[in-house]
């Protein structure tokens, strides 16, 4: 009885998560294409790295159920969440050092001028 109800519900949830994840991925890619300079593109890439990956992996987890596969999927997600900010930060740093200038960025109220 519950099985018969649970199965379609899980399928629907994972369908929603998958389409949401793919939509966010395309959003991030469009942002990367559309935004004017490197630093703003970095933000758009952040969308694909965090919530998009999370939703797609969560959808796969729902498909897999409680098993070692789900644990591995959770590990992939955890790993992506750990590495993507490090990669983004390293990119931003390298860009600043290589002399890429942010296009018309306003200075925020700074506590210490660089």
């Amino acid at each position: 009885m519950t099985e018969a109800l649970l199965e379609p519900a899980l399928d629907l949830a994972s369908l929603l998560l998958l389409s949401g994840g793919v939509f966010l991925g395309i959003t991030g890619a469009v942002g990367v294409l559309r935004f004017p300079d490197f630093f703003t593109r970095l933000h758009a890439a952040g969308v694909t790295d965090t919530l998009s990956a999370g939703m797609i992996l969560a959808a796969l987890m729902l498909q897999a159920g409680l098993s070692l596969i789900s644990v591995k999927l959770a590990f992939i997600l955890l790993f992506l969440l750990y590495t993507s900010p490090v990669a983004s930060h390293a990119l931003a740093r390298a860009a600043v050092h290589a002399g890429v200038k942010p296009v018309d960025a306003k200075p925020g109220e700074s506590s210490s001028p660089s």
Binding site: F39, H43, G46, P85, H89, A92, V96
Partner: peptide, 27 residues
């Protein structure tokens, strides 16, 4: 710094002892 970068819209560029240099997509 990682939390700043992980939330889309803000990126930590450089971290020093008492300040972090941030680039944000919007005010």
């Amino acid at each position: 710094a990682n939390s700043i970068t992980l939330t889309p819209g803000t990126v930590a560029i450089e971290v020093s002892d008492d300040a972090v240099m941030v680039h944000a997509l919007s005010e």
